[in-house]
Design a protein around this nucleic acid. Structure first.
Length: 722
DNA sequence: CTAAATTCCTTTTTT
DNA sequence: AGGAATTTAG
């Protein structure tokens, strides 16, 4: 059986056995926090006779959840299907589907990811005439996300806030309309899942009591990366019994862009009563040489609790820094290095290449491919975001949720079936006017005027097809349904016929998707003793990410962003692109907070390595269409003592290349070339050139009265005067 | 209505 | 540069 004393150190043992109080575990990288969570669960079930379904364990990814469940199963040697393990999103979604009666949603609502969010916004802009320039989609969505992560719906925001801020006023309107549109579509975005769950638990006494009773023991991993909505969910659940154990490391907080706030970990002792705080500082993963570097790096951060990791695994190999003339060379050399390791018999699965941005993966893919080294990309452009997969999913969503216009619009003419723009906009116009869903509109074609008979015929055929499938989806297993859809639409064969290699990949992706549906269906029916229907499958698939997909077994080099590396470990780790403006990223260099978060990202990367760590940078790198010369990352300063071959670092700084001037991007400029502007005296004019980014920019304007004037931007107006 | 042509638009990180 | 979105031609 399990030997808790044998397998755990004293501190860990305390985490595992002190189950009746709120516990805060400050666990450094590699200190065995996952082990603590697993053993704590095992302890509760095995030693305290707590039923598995009374436990709630929140992990950061679905993959981590599955692994945790597997490890627990093999540890206790009993099936753990009734255990609530999952991400905040998956657990919340489960609750929301179940409690939909208390929401303005029905249980088969759709989930909209960023593409659909944008599409919804665009329709709103069009209908109400908002200017995309003034309200850039990404900005607006990011802002909406921020509000939601703070649990603020449009109605929760005080009108005074927006009173003197026209932008905010417009934004609030858009936000409101966006929420209305989502509701019309019976769709939630990712942030809604958390927000509605938090609201439900906070405001509905019966629901709260019910889940408080279910979740007697709560554990949360990666607590440093939780946001306010997530905090509230847990806080409501743990309010009475306070048996909550959170595990985190403030040095590894890397998700503030998602609304995560360190407040949760810093204030935990105030949020709960008689909190026991336990620190885990012994690292069981890395050699001392690697930890020296890690400690040295993170020490530069001002906003942190001082702590120092130590290890008993011996000194080990010093991390090295390599400087390459160019990003291609960097990739080639790393590939070459890996191929040597491979020939020596090293396991590729234990080698990872980490980078800041997804775009960097391409270089490594090419280099590895050339050397015939197997690799897998973890995360990256999501499998589930590919066009062919989204199309298929849109069919499925559309069947399950007739209110979901976005999904229906996506598939109504995909593959092309003669239902073009005109027809669609007429149908949509009718639906909007009569306030029914698009699907209802195509079901009542006779009521739609101005559609010619051939269009009606085509739409009618499509409608019939969808209705048949909807029928089928309620009775037939999802595996059979998906197979039928793919076959009837001829999706695979269509792509296969194409000569474009991309289409061939698409065909393969579809086949892979069908296989994954089968896999899901098998597992589901084994666990639930009935076949999986569409409604069982959709919530599952909505939250799947590529991250959850890479098979453990395949012997391949792992490529991933630093964000995706969280929680993982490898014998050998390469961290590439250690350049200013890449790490730290140019978009996150404005404030100390941002820089420190970027540094934590570097720290997370470093601490993934067990034995060997290879840092590298390129002196030049192609960015989109231009070649730029780089500077070594500021994070490399003062690391000479702990790095191998420190002398190299000076070279690029003195090389003949000067750091290029910070190029101002068009989007940051208030004035753009070709833009119409107005001036008190000279009236209307056109911008010919701009120097600078704000209202202080020096702008050359050709005025209608024939004058060509260089002028400071603050004298110009962007809209007609008077 | 479809397909080609052109513009445009992105360029951080993700559940 | 590359792909998506939109416009234009057939």
């Amino acid at each position: 059986m399990i030997d808790f004393y044998q397998d755990l150190n004293d501190r860990q043992l305390e985490v595992v056995t002190d189950v009746d109080h709120p516990i805060l575990v400050l666990a450094g990288a590699g200190s065995g926090k996952t082990r603590c969570i697993i053993y704590r669960a095992a302890y509760l079930i095995h030693e305290r006779n707590i039923a598995p379904w009374k436990l709630l364990i929140v992990t950061f990814t679905n993959k981590a959840a599955r692994e945790l469940q597997d490890r627990l199963e093999s540890l206790l040697n009993i099936p753990m299907r009734s255990l609530w393990v999952g991400t905040f999103h998956s657990i919340s979604l489960r609750i929301l589907r179940y409690e939909s009666a208390h929401l303005p949603y029905n249980s088969n609502f759709s989930i909209y990811a960023s593409d659909e969010q944008k599409s919804v916004l665009k329709k709103i802009y069009k209908e109400y005439g908002y200017d995309v320039q003034k309200y850039p989609l990404n900005k607006v969505l990011a802002r909406i996300g921020r509000y939601k992560n703070r649990l603020q719906l449009p109605e929760d925001i005080q009108p005074e806030e927006a009173a003197h801020n026209p932008f905010l006023k417009g934004f609030m309107q858009i936000y409101q309309r966006y929420q209305e549109a989502l509701l019309m579509n019976q769709a939630m975005d990712f942030d809604d899942i958390l927000l509605y769950t938090a609201h439900l638990l906070r405001d509905n006494d019966a629901v709260r009591a019910k889940y408080q009773d279910i979740f007697q023991y709560i554990m949360i991993d990666e607590y440093q990366d939780t946001n306010k909505a997530q905090f509230e969910i847990i806080h409501q659940l743990a309010l009475i019994h306070q048996r909550v154990c959170v595990v985190g490391d403030d040095d590894q907080a890397i998700y503030s862009f998602r609304g995560a706030t360190l407040r949760n970990i810093l204030e935990f002792e105030r949020d709960y009563e008689a909190v026991q705080t336990i620190r885990l500082e012994q690292n069981y993963r890395s050699t001392t040489a690697i930890l020296d570097l890690a400690n040295r790096v993170i020490k530069q951060n001002k906003q942190r609790h001082a702590k120092e990791l130590f290890s008993e695994l011996g000194e080990g190999i010093r991390p090295a820094l390599r400087v390459y003339p160019d990003a291609n060379v960097e990739a080639e050399q790393i590939a070459l290095n890996i191929s040597r390791q491979w020939k020596l018999g090293n396991n590729l699965r234990q080698i990872a290449i980490l980078y800041r941005t997804n775009a960097q993966s391409r270089l490594f893919e090419n280099a590895l491919m050339q050397k015939k080294i197997p690799y897998s990309i973890v995360g990256s452009l999501n499998f589930y975001q590919r066009k062919e997969i989204k199309d298929l999913l849109a069919y499925l969503y559309s069947m399950a949720n007739p209110a979901d216009n976005e999904s229906l619009l996506r598939v109504i003419n995909e593959p092309p079936r003669g239902i073009g723009q005109t027809t669609v906009s007429r149908l949509l116009g009718f639906a909007t006017k009569t306030r029914i869903s698009l699907f209802s509109a195509i079901q009542n074609l006779s009521a739609v005027p101005e559609l010619n008979s051939s269009a009606k015929k085509r739409v009618g055929d499509f409608c019939k097809m969808m209705e048949d499938w909807r029928q089928m989806s309620t009775s037939q297993p999802v595996a059979a349904l998906v197979k039928d859809v793919v076959e009837l639409l001829g999706m695979v064969s269509l792509y296969r016929k194409s000569s474009d290699p991309k289409d061939i990949t698409r065909a393969e992706n579809l086949i892979e998707f069908v296989a994954s549906v089968n896999e899901f269906a098998e597992r589901f029916s084994a666990e639930n003793d009935r076949p999986a229907l569409l409604v069982d499958f959709l919530p599952f698939v909505a939250l799947q990410t590529d991250l959850d997909k890479v098979s453990e077994e395949s012997d391949s080099v792992r490529l991933m962003t630093l964000h995706n590396a969280k929680g993982l470990e490898f014998e050998t780790v390469y961290i590439a692109g250690l350049e200013d403006e890449l790490l730290p990223h140019r978009m996150s260099m404005d404030t100390i907070e941002e820089i420190e978060e970027e540094r934590r990202l570097f720290y997370v990367g470093i601490t993934r390595a067990k034995r060997e760590l290879l840092l590298s940078l390129a002196e030049a790198r192609r960015l989109y269409d231009t070649y730029t010369f780089t500077q070594p990352s500021m994070f490399l300063d003062n690391l000479d003592e702990v790095l191998d071959s420190p002398g190299h670092i000076a070279a690029p700084q003195q090389s003949l290349y000067r750091k290029p001037k910070n190029k101002i991007r068009e989007s940051q400029k208030l004035f753009k070339i070709g833009q119409r502007v107005w001036h008190k005296e000279h009236h209307q004019g056109i911008v010919l050139s701009v120097n600078g980014m704000g209202a202080d920019a020096v702008v050359t304007v050709s005025f209608q009265n024939g004058k060509l004037i260089k002028i400071v931007g603050s004298f110009l107006h962007t809209e007609p005067i008077g």
